[in-house]
Design a protein around this nucleic acid. Structure first.
Lengths: 234, 234
DNA sequence: AGCTTACGACAACACCATTGACGTGTCATG
DNA sequence: CATGACACGTCAATGGTGTTGTCGTAAGCT
């Protein structure tokens, strides 16, 4: 097969499609995100995306070598949106907290796409910038390189894992979402104290706490532990 | 469409297929798990499963209303297998670590099914038993109820989130898996020191560390932080 | 022994990603 | 301003997917 993809920056000719659309990597990514947001993850197919763009499906292969490459571009776009407008404060702990919460929030804003994208390594610009930033925060805070790398890994994986996990809940149909919450109260609210004493004793607390995401507290705990491993400065 | 599925317990006639196999829910689930284990996640299709069973693909629809129902059955089977044989030691930290790693490991053993399971609250016996156990460990370790509940939430969500995250990576088509690994060397190995000094400085460490899961270290950090919040005993 | 019907098989449908071939509109060159 | 090269949108085809309407037959009841 001949390589059909021309890198975006080297693209010169832009011929409109029969329906008048002028394609670009940007337009394709944005249309794909819109498609997923409006009609769910399963609505994202080359054929449907082509239709939404007003182009033949195969035209997409002039921009992405396959659907995997497109998916990576979507993932990178989400990472990029998470970083928009953020500036480091110089306080490593505050900065890490902000980045973690921003990644989480960005993925929640498009749960369907987040589910597709959260577990990929893109190697694209937004991602490499985020990696560079986080590593910079840790190294200039005084973590020696081997520790900085391990901490980076745990921090990033946890942010992405929670983001995907919470996105999955949001991605459920609204009806199924409420039904799930109901089932939770039904099943756990009625567990008898003789077989499940600990659940029974803490049920009101549990029910209240499980409403929200576990991420903010888990992040705080992670930051606690990281701080404890920071070699005493001075 | 007519409902084709007859519940397993009410099944009476067992007609062999042309190739002589006698189908059952058990046989189908076990064959499916074997198929995935031997030939990878992408080998699991209705057609291939039918072929592996020695039956027409459409015969499966006499046992499962669709592939989602089949995958749920696979997931349920895995949950059952995972909990076998674990006993608490009385050391809260060792017990939590063991539970976390067990959940993680069992999901890795069949990523495809794990992806479905990790995002759903079943409220069924295996799940409620796990909740009861973890809460019991925390409460008898001396955590006051409100803290025990928050810690429980963070711990469980972390385990499930990482399990799903790492399962997702394993469930990718082999090609995408290799692509992700390649990206680390291609994209991150070539980032110039003037734009990405921190990545450039730590690249060998990074490439080595990112090969494995971030969970074991993230779990250890979480346990560190939890221990630090345990009210001094005595 | 005969009847009912469960269940396996067949064939078809609608969708999917991907690719080779083609021709036209766009741009760089002169 | 004309021209030639070729980028890129289009077409058509391939081989995959899950799913379903229909049918015959053999299993198991009476």
């Amino acid at each position: 097969m001949v390589e059909r993809v021309v890198p975006e920056e080297r693209r010169q000719r832009r011929r409109p499609t029969k329906q008048g659309a002028v394609l670009s990597e940007r337009l394709i990514v944005e249309t794909a995100l819109r498609l997923v947001a409006q009609h769910g993850a399963e609505a994202l197919s080359v054929r449907r995306l082509g239709a939404a763009l007003g182009a033949d499906p195969s035209a997409l292969y002039r921009y992405f070598r396959n659907t995997d490459a497109l998916l990576l571009a979507l993932a990178d776009e989400l990472i990029g949106r998470a970083q928009e407008g953020w500036r480091p404060t110089g306080d490593w702990r505050a900065d890490l907290r902000a980045i973690g919460l921003r990644i989480h929030a960005s993925y929640q804003s498009n749960p369907q796409a987040a589910l597709l994208a959260a577990h990929r390594t893109t190697g694209r610009v937004h991602e490499t910038r985020a990696v560079e930033t986080i590593l910079g925060i840790l190294r200039s805070a005084g973590f020696p390189d081997p520790l900085a790398v391990r901490v980076y890994h745990a921090f990033v994986d946890q942010a992405l894992a929670f983001a995907a996990q919470d996105a999955a809940a949001l991605a459920l149909p609204a009806a199924a979402q409420e039904a799930d919450a109901e089932v939770w109260h039904q099943a756990y609210g009625r567990l008898p104290a003789d077989t499940h004493p600990n659940v029974a004793a803490t049920f009101p607390l549990l029910a209240a706490d499980m409403r929200g995401s576990g991420y903010p507290f888990a992040l705080e705990l992670l930051l606690d532990a990281i701080a404890a491993r920071l070699p005493a400065a001075r």
